[in-house]
Amino acid sequence: MEASGEAADNGGEALAEDVTPALHKYLMDITKEIRELKNDITALNTSFKQDFASFKEDVYNKLKANKDELQDQKKSFNEAQTHIEELEAFNLEAKDTLLTTLHEQRKLQDKLTDLEGRSRRNNVRIFGVPEGAEGDSVPRFVEELLQRKLTLPEGTSLLIQRAHRATARRPGPGETPRSIIINLLRFDTKEMILRKAWQKRVKLGNSPLYFDNDYAAEVVQQRRAYMEIKKTLKAKGIRFQTPLTRIRIHWTDGPRLYNSAQEAAKEMRKRGMDVQMKEADEERTMEERIHAAWTWQHVGEPGACGGLTQRTRGRLQEFRRAEDRGNI
């Protein structure tokens, strides 16, 4: 028994001696592989850190570039917004200045028209006299024509200062003859001639003659706008009068005075009348066209261009003061 036990111990020691080198080699191999794996992981980690750092730097650079670009765009947008605000302010101030100037120009034009009308208040125009019928002296022809055709009281002195054809191109055969303008010394003589001429039909041969006031060109243009209105009223048998640049219509509910052809036409359409106005007669005024074209409105305080209107208004006020001093 003892012999067999010793044999077993000796066999175990021999097996241990055989296994230990193999295990040691195995462990060494594992350790080596672990060390190599660790080195690979370390190298991979270093490469990853480098790649991540490079990626981070690229992202940072791109974000910085985008930020700079956004700041530039914001700056450009702010500058564009400022320019637009300045442009809006300028346009609004220019609109106000233009409307103010147009208003002042209209007032001056009205004054000029009034002065011209006053200088013509002793004038009479005769329409329809054939060209050449006046002979070599228009004043003498007119004197004889009025005395004969209007049956003026005997001994009436017309006191004609000047008489001549309208200063226009001499018409050709078949064209409308030029009117004759008569300047009288006395206003009451002019009124008497028109009153008598309007009470009867005056003819020179087969040519009907028409007598009227000598209006300024602007007044003639405004009166011409009532042409279609007067035709419609005549067809309806409605009485009307045209004092200077207005029209008075005698409706069944009483007379009404209208300041423009557009105003009268609007009223006639309301009353069921078909008035065919020419396009030129219904043309909008300059102020209406400016309001339609400029749709911007003032919002808040005026911009940097506000001084433009102030300077213009100041000059206009200086002009008005100088004009008022001249009228004293």
Rank of each mutant, 00 (worst) to 15 (best):
L115S: 07
L115P: 00
L115E: 11
L115T: 03
E116V: 01
E116K: 10
E116H: 07
E116I: 00
G117E: 13
G117I: 01
G117L: 08
G117S: 12
R118D: 13
R118H: 13
R118F: 09
S119A: 15
S119W: 08
S119P: 00
R120A: 01
R120F: 11
R121V: 14
R121C: 13
R121I: 14
N122D: 06
N122I: 02
N123E: 10
N123Q: 11
N123K: 05
V124M: 06
V124L: 11
V124F: 02
R125T: 07
R125A: 08
I126T: 02
I126N: 03
I126F: 08
F127E: 14
F127H: 14
F127D: 10
F127N: 12
G128V: 05
G128S: 04
G128T: 08
G128C: 07
G128K: 01
V129H: 07
V129Q: 06
V129S: 06
V129M: 08
P130H: 05
P130S: 08
P130M: 06
P130C: 07
E131K: 02
E131M: 12
E131I: 10
E131T: 14
E131W: 02
G132N: 09
G132K: 03
A133Y: 06
E134Y: 09
G135S: 06
G135C: 06
G135W: 07
D136F: 08
D136M: 09
S137K: 07
S137H: 07
S137T: 02
V138E: 04
V138P: 14
V138H: 10
P139M: 04
F141W: 02
F141A: 09
F141G: 07
F141S: 06
F141Q: 02
V142Y: 01
E143Q: 13
E143A: 05
E143L: 08
E143S: 12
E143K: 14
E144R: 12
L145P: 07
L145K: 03
L145W: 00
L145R: 05
L145Q: 04
L146D: 02
L146S: 01
L146P: 10
Q147L: 09
Q147Y: 01
Q147R: 12
Q147E: 13
Q147N: 12
R148E: 15
R148Y: 06
R148H: 13
K149V: 04
K149C: 11
K149Q: 14
K149D: 05
K149S: 15
L150H: 05
L150T: 05
L150N: 08
L150E: 06
T151N: 15
T151A: 13
T151H: 15
T151C: 09
T151E: 15
T151R: 14
T151I: 15
P153K: 13
P153W: 00
P153M: 05
P153R: 11
G155F: 00
T156C: 01
T156N: 00
T156I: 05
S157V: 15
S157H: 11
S157Q: 15
L158E: 09
L158Y: 09
L158Q: 09
L158A: 09
L158G: 08
L159Q: 15
L159D: 15
L159Y: 14
L159S: 14
L159V: 06
L159K: 15
L159E: 15
I160P: 05
I160Q: 03
I160N: 03
I160M: 05
Q161P: 12
Q161R: 12
R162G: 00
R162C: 04
A163N: 03
A163C: 10
A163K: 01
A163Q: 01
H164I: 00
H164E: 11
H164Q: 13
H164P: 00
H164L: 04
